[in-house]
Design a protein around this nucleic acid. Structure first.
Lengths: 127, 127
DNA sequence: TTGTTTTTACGAACTGAATCGTATATTTGA
DNA sequence: TCAAATATACGATTCAGTTCGTAAAAACAA
């Protein structure tokens, strides 16, 4: 049906997608510079990754000018959900609430965030 | 410090860990039979995986009798947390509440589970 | 006992991810 | 204009994960 049987970005690909989701669109150089901030990576490596991601359909690109411009071809939300679902299956034996509890229990969450979650929770229980 | 710099089970290894966490301990055959229920896998493949996991320290084993008995060497909770942390970083740009919201929003959660989460939330906000 | 089954050990093949070097084309600015 | 800088393309390498076949040892059963 829709399109996505296979959203399964690798870790490196996710790093790149993060940048593209953030910026909306970016050249290889921009992606490379951004990732370089936290990691040693060659320019051609970034290029190659983007090319591979293009072949896989993870990103699209505009090559009307010589310097190609890449854009995400999968939505952040869909990708997050897909990976979340996998993790719930593989790591939490299918229990999403287990995952939620672990996440809330062991990772710092600010009061504002807790409020937001509370709001969502209220909505869910109204149904 | 403690021990675990490197809890990074692969997907196949996670499948096996699930079985071991569930049963507490198991032979290669038991692991294989369990996994076979949902997946085509050769016996020696399961064996090899367990051997590799043993080398990595992911499982321990009792080989006092010929038929080795394998046990998890990493706790379910620690592993879950480790992988959760990675996912929060890699996929949710560090925001655990984002992850929680997505998980709650898009995956069926029963009333009982919501109650449990509510309870946890109440506790967190008291602090 | 002896042939069948079960087990472990181990190596080999295959795959996909990640990385980089080099060649070539294009752009740019002195 | 033309040398330097920048971009793409692409092949090669390395590494880890997965899978399986085969051999040898041990257990088992008729």
């Amino acid at each position: 049906m829709s399109s996505n049987k296979t959203i399964k970005p690798t870790e490196s690909e996710l790093e790149i997608l993060q940048v593209l989701w953030e910026k909306g669109a970016a050249t290889v150089r921009e992606v490379h510079d951004e990732i370089s901030k936290t990691k040693d990576i060659g320019y051609t490596t970034a290029l190659k990754l983007l090319q591979i991601m293009f072949e896989k359909g993870l990103v699209s690109r505009n090559d009307s000018s010589k310097t190609h411009i890449y854009m995400p071809a999968v939505s952040r939300e869909k990708t997050q959900n897909h990976l979340l679902g996998k993790m719930i299956d593989n790591v939490f034996s299918g229990s999403s609430s287990q995952l939620v509890m672990q996440a809330l229990g062991n990772h710092k969450t600010s009061k504002e965030e807790l409020d937001e979650i509370q709001k969502l929770l209220d909505n869910l229980r109204k149904e």
